[in-house]
Simulated assay, not measured.
Amino acid sequence: MLMRTDPFRDIDRMFEQLAGTSGRPAVMHIDAERDGDWFNVYFDLPGVDPDSIELTVERNVLSVKAQRQRFQRDGVETVISERPMGVFTRQLFLGDTLNTDDLQASYDNGVLTLRIPVSEKAKPRKISIGGGGSNPKQIRG
């Protein structure tokens, strides 16, 4: 008996592992950047109800949880269902250099934006150096 195989099966399987499936949602993709005294993080959450987004910070661990649901309508037959649905979660480990007490969050056009100020102790500072003489000055950072 000759078995035929789908040459694209392995490619489809790899794509499902990267993008997720309806049973196992995909990873919440992010970008992060430092802009002067702020650290900005952008989470892609298209189609997510803003009321379903939960943000928590505990011991410098930022957790984001969001849910996207498929709404079924009477008399409508689903023909293709590829968009990942369900609960999406992501954790970020934040350094001690960020002031999580003043974290700001906004959600617009499917993007959750977090702005976290850099703490005062992490900002660069100038250290003055005294001239040579009989009373050396101590340098503090």
Rank of each mutant, 00 (worst) to 15 (best):
G47L: 07
Q72P: 00
L55W: 08
L94M: 04
V57R: 06
G75V: 03
D31W: 03
L112S: 01
L45V: 02
T56H: 09
R24A: 10
M14C: 01
L18I: 03
F71Q: 14
Y42T: 01
M3L: 13
I11K: 09
T56Y: 11
S106G: 11
D6F: 09
R59L: 12
G110Y: 11
M3T: 07
S22H: 08
N99S: 15
F8T: 08
N40V: 06
H29E: 11
H29C: 04
V64L: 15
I30S: 09
R13I: 04
V48T: 12
G75K: 05
V79M: 07
E54D: 15
Q72H: 13
F39M: 11
G36Y: 01
F39Y: 15
E16I: 02
A19I: 11
D37H: 10
V76A: 09
T89G: 10
D12E: 06
R34C: 09
D49R: 06
I53V: 14
L98M: 04
G95R: 01
D37S: 11
S63I: 02
L112Q: 01
L18N: 00
F15W: 05
L18V: 02
F15D: 04
W38R: 10
Q69G: 02
T78Y: 07
A105S: 14
Y107E: 02
V111G: 05
D108W: 13
L18E: 05
E54L: 14
D31L: 10
V64S: 02
Y42V: 00
G23N: 12
F88M: 13
